[in-house]
Amino acid sequence: MEKPLNNKAWFLVLPVFVLVAFSALLPLMTVVNYAFQDTFGNNQFFWAGTDWFEKLLHSDRFGEALIRQVLFSGLILAIEVPLGIAVALCMPRKGLWVPVCLVLMALPLLIPWNVVGTIWQIFGRVDIGLLGHVLYSLGIDYNYTQDPLSAWITVVVMDVWHWTSLVALLCYAGLQSIPDAFYQAARIDGASRWSVFRHIQLPKMDRVLLIAVLLRFMDSFMIYTEPFVVTGGGPGNSTTFLSIDLVKLAIGQFDLGPAAAMSLIYFLIILLMSWVFYTVMTKQDEQDQNRKTGGGE
């Protein structure tokens, strides 16, 4: 059934529109303003054209932060998605342990991000942290405040700890929607473990998996608080991701022009990703709708 066309529905959307316009459009226009102007204080601004963008795109600093960011997001996806699927497949499907598992697994998702940072800052310290101390006793050279590799491992493991449950919970929800009859049919057909996964479980998960992958990609792409608390972007610049660099530039050094230009480029990258996300998702919605109406009538 088609949704009816009704332009009065705009009145229902109006409060959201006004509120989000206030908290998104106005600030964004300020950023655009700064990106094309230069200031020497006293609230006097001069037209700078695309200077900031050219400088930024040619600067090593931005390029390196971007590479680190892409590397980080890629690594996160490569670890969290398979791990999340595996955990979801191992979850009990019914019984007393289900709510226990769900609540325990969701726990890291509800911890304030700076506390997540604090937890790992303490946990990884060589002198007082369990992880750092054990690794040190084993003779492994691990120190996240001085060694870039250790810092990277700490930040990645922390993110895996923090967000794998999200992927697992989503996949689990997808798996739960599979009726038992499917498994029984597969068993009668003598389907292998792999083909059950490939032809029954994976298709049921693809929708939630898509949401999981894209949420994880985008949230890891704008990660700020956790690495900021643990490493502060260091040692050196080794864990300075885009957001951390941007905040350093904007609030630390108060370089409005470059910071604004960087914001816009950063935002454009995310916008592009959102567009892909949205297109894929609405396409799937439409397909589902067609399938439903096709089956019902």
Partner: peptide
């Protein structure tokens, strides 16, 4: 897009 906007972009404005 606003759900996806990095808060760091909006901090200063």
């Amino acid at each position: 897009t606003n759900r996806m906007a990095p808060p760091a972009v909006f901090a200063l404005p």
